[in-house]
Design a protein around this nucleic acid. Structure first.
Length: 494
RNA sequence: GCCCCCAUCGUCUAGUGGCCCAGGACGAAGCCCUCUCAAGGCUUAAACCGGGAUUCGAAUUCCCGUGGGGGCACCA
């Protein structure tokens, strides 16, 4: 076996939104290429003009870019084996389809879709497997050529052997034997002159010197056909790796776009394009998807670089994996905690701005350490720290009343706190907590009651970052103003 | 209907014949810490689909069931 430089590819069809299944189909070949010092290619399989979606290719490229999966060759950046868009390779596919006809491995077929449909109905009625009936196999090569040249519509079909069997090997599953009789005379070249996946992918993988074909397991059943095509050309087969499918969170049924509609309601999505808006980080998403179908013994929190170091293509798992959004949350939160203050500040700023808040960078830098371990998604910064950038807060009056006390008592506490704090030159974490604790002590109240009132008065919410750190950042003037306002509200209630 | 693939805690997985009365992570429960919420620390519950066979010995090998998934297009 010769040692060839590793070349892998991500070959999506631009037919819709990029989802996590696509992302993983890109990630693994990328990881393998980087790990082996090889090359990772992006190829667009756009041979189905009916399902072609405008903008899908762009979304794919943006998704890869966001995740940090950088391709070395592709339609947007070129490369020595281009073009990388299959519709731009139609002459090549055409040529190779006819090579197969000339070598006797394929034949032109003139059957109409109507006739084919009728045959299929008949077969189903007789409980037979729907299969091409071989009508055009009998046409002499010269006659077929003549009809093609005269402009008759045709497709090219693979001439599947009627007997024998073929053995193909999937890296994760081992050898798989298939009877040729169970295989069909599949269409290689469509009547619109474009190739089907079967032909296009095999030809392009060969011409682009792909060493490892990593793709979804929906391709497993057509691997025998693909091997037949490759062997008919006399080529050497690449290593085939078929990835497990993603199941819905319940673990039953394949992940679908429909199931996702519900998922996005509680802040999750399977679409890469939604992830950023929902506050997910590329690090978190990457860590999540890399582990769906790949297991590591310990230390499962990894950056992309660490994944490259540890990745091993043989250790992927062949069994289906149920998607688990709780785990996404966990990895996202974990990676947020790993970010530097400056980095995290830059990442949450857009979420504040999106809410119309006027972000002051010096304050932003101060609140990041307070927010960091509380964020599951980046947009949680609003819930926890939005009040830092508001001129005023309007707490729910009910929340201002401490547990076990009434409005009048709560107002008194707030008034006392106001006095204590106004006596201080400045409000600081270290300097302001002590006198207030002393007050708690002598009043016989508990800290939750006193600090709770202040928390709601100052932040406008019941849950917030630590009170005194927050007050220090907000400043004496604003704090006192907000407490005073709370006193007024409480007195009105009393 | 036919063909193919898969099968360890609820979920993602480690485990390649003895290191396993099965390890880690998420989630769950409890405790500690604590101004709320988190984070952090400690602890607990939780699995080898069933049946045969091979072997001194099987989660690990083989066979048969069962369950789950995929595929049978001029879609990829």
């Amino acid at each position: 076996m010769s040692i060839k430089p590793v070349r892998t590819r991500f070959a999506p069809s631009p037919t819709g939104r990029m989802h996590i299944g696509n992302a993983r189909s890109a990630l693994y070949p990328f990881l393998l290429a980087r790990r082996m010092g090889g090359t990772f290619i992006l190829r667009i399989e756009d041979t189905d003009q009916k399902r072609y979606t405008q903008g899908a290719e762009q979304e794919l490229i943006e998704g890869l870019h966001w995740l940090g999966i950088q391709h070395d060759e592709g339609p947007d950046i070129g490369g020595p084996f281009g073009p990388y868009r299959q519709t731009e390779r139609r002459e090549i596919h055409h040529e190779y389809a006819w090579k197969l006809v000339e070598s006797g491995h394929a034949f032109p077929c003139f059957c109409t879709t109507e006739r084919l449909e009728k045959v299929r109905q008949e077969q189903m009625k007789n409980k037979q497997n729907p299969r091409y009936d071989g009508a055009c196999r009998a046409i002499a090569p010269d006659e077929a050529r003549g009809r093609v040249d005269s402009g008759e519509k045709y497709v090219i079909r693979f001439k599947m052997p009627k007997v024998g069997s073929i053995t193909v090997t999937d890296l994760l599953r081992g050898p798989i034997v298939t009877e040729n009789a169970a295989l069909d005379d599949s269409v290689l070249l469509k009547s619109d002159g474009l190739p089907t996946y079967h032909l296009a992918a095999m030809v392009d993988d060969q011409l682009m010197k792909i060493t490892h074909v990593i793709r979804g397991s929906e391709w497993l059943p057509s691997m025998p056909l693909h091997a037949h095509i490759i062997r008919a050309f006399g080529w050497e087969e690449p290593v085939f790796v078929h990835l497990s499918v993603f199941l819905k969170p319940a673990g039953k049924g394949k992940m679908s776009k429909r199931g996702d509609v519900e998922a996005i309601k509680d802040g999750h999505s399977i679409f890469l394009g939604d992830m950023k808006d929902l506050g997910f980080t590329p690090e978190g998403v990457l860590n999540w998807i890399v582990l769906m179908g790949w297991g590591v013994a310990e230390d499962d929190v990894m950056t992309l670089a660490q994944m490259v170091d540890r990745f091993n293509i043989d250790s992927l798992t062949p069994s289906p994996a149920a998607i688990n959004f709780q785990k996404l949350d966990h990895f996202n939160a974990t990676h947020i905690r790993l970010l530097t203050t400056e980095d995290l500040a830059g990442r949450i700023k857009p979420y504040f701005t999106r809410e119309g808040l006027n972000v002051k960078d010096d304050i932003l830098l101060k609140i990041v350490p307070l927010l960091r371990e509380r964020l599951v998604t980046l947009d949680d910064c609003i819930a926890f720290g939005g009040f830092f950038f508001k001129d005023d807060v309007t707490p729910n009056p009910e929340d201002l009343i401490a547990k076990g006390l009434d409005a009048k008592q709560s107002a008194e506490i707030a008034r006392r706190a106001y006095e204590i704090l106004s006596a201080q030159p400045v409000i600081s974490h270290e300097g302001s907590e002590l006198p207030l604790r002393a007050y708690v002590e002598e009043s016989g109240l508990n800290v939750n009651q006193v600090f709770g009132i202040l928390r709601v008065a100052i932040t406008g919410q019941r849950v917030s970052p630590p009170l005194f750190e927050s007050m220090e950042i907000i400043g004496k003037e604003k704090c006192l103003y907000r407490i005073k306002k709370a006193v007024e509200v409480l007195e009105k209630m009393g």
